[in-house]
Amino acid sequence: MAEISIAIFISLFIIGVVVFAAIRKRKNDNYDEMQELARLRGYKYGFITMAAFLGFWMMMDTVQVIDGLPFKLYNNTIIIVIFMTSIMVTIAYDVLHDAYFYVGMKPDYWKKYCLMILAVGAVNLISAILAMRNGEMVNSDGYLILGGSISNFIVAVEFLVPTTIILIKKVFIKDEEEE
């Protein structure tokens, strides 16, 4: 039954992504050629990250290193963490090359974006820390559970990493402006 639910969820997710991409493609050609290239490279590096982590996980599993950890891991937890890491790599690359939504294009957009994302990330991070302190990371069988604190932590990282990169880029890396 759980497998059916997962299959349905994944199917709906894929359909949603395809529909979303089709709608966005029609309505939004706001990325120019350089940004499109940057985004393609971002996807490439994200894919490479995912493949590398999957290979690393398979190797770790083969030599049974994972069994030596202080907690157990469900396979879906590992897969989701790997997937989210690859997304984060893609987003980080896009942000660094001004190809992430309007962050590099509209003058003050990045401030509003950072504020919003920082708020979401901070809320999730606080929630994750509180849940960890309450001992909600591991279930009764000793497995690290994806729900609760771990998912909050993943979401917090997903939001805070792009924000941090944007802030570093804006504050420390001075773009060559007009004379």
Binding site: E33, M34, D98, G104, M105, D175, E176
Partner: peptide, 21 residues
């Protein structure tokens, strides 16, 4: 119809534009 960063990159030599651009 491109971003400012693209023009900047072309001027700095960091990006080779397509023929259309």
């Amino acid at each position: 119809n491109v971003s400012r960063q693209t023009i900047s990159a072309i001027e700095k030599g960091d990006y080779n534009p397509t023929i259309n651009l």
